[in-house]
């Protein structure tokens, strides 16, 4: 699967199924299991239908406009911390309970919100 066509084309894998969705949604929009199944069913069919390497556009379009925003030059990345980045503090405690604080210690990563 890929939603980053140029990056995957550069890697040149044997088979790729392209969904033209905003990054972070490679397998479809959230809470839409019918569409998600349809996408994966089509992608997996490539294992049987393709006779040579290639990248196939599955033909989906995102339900809302997004490319104009995504094309603006901006850097949304958050700092690349070198400690475990938990989704929440409860996860950190659960990992500490299993692995001990020295292995599991880290800081909690905020959900990434684009700075516009």
């Amino acid at each position: 699967m890929t939603s980053a066509r140029s990056i995957t084309a550069s890697v040149n894998p044997p088979r790729a199924a392209f969904t033209d969705f905003p990054l972070g949604h490679t397998c479809g929009p959230p809470d839409n299991p019918v569409l998600q199944r349809s996408i994966l069913r089509q992608a997996l069919a490539l294992f049987e239908t393709r006779s040579e390497p290639g990248l196939v556009d599955l033909g989906y379009r995102w339900h809302q406009p997004w490319k104009e925003e995504a094309r603006r030059l901006q850097d949304h990345r958050t700092p690349r911390y070198d400690t475990p980045q938990y989704q929440n503090q409860d996860d950190r405690k659960a990992a500490e309970a299993s692995y001990g604080p020295e292995i599991a210690c880290g800081v909690c990563a905020p959900s990434q919100v684009p700075r516009t």
Binding site: G24, H25, G28
Partner: peptide, 15 residues
């Protein structure tokens, strides 16, 4: 650190 996590946290199936 490099993609919008909102959808993935709402429904991990997206990634």
């Amino acid at each position: 650190f490099a993609f919008d996590l909102e959808a993935a946290r709402q429904d991990p199936n997206v990634v």
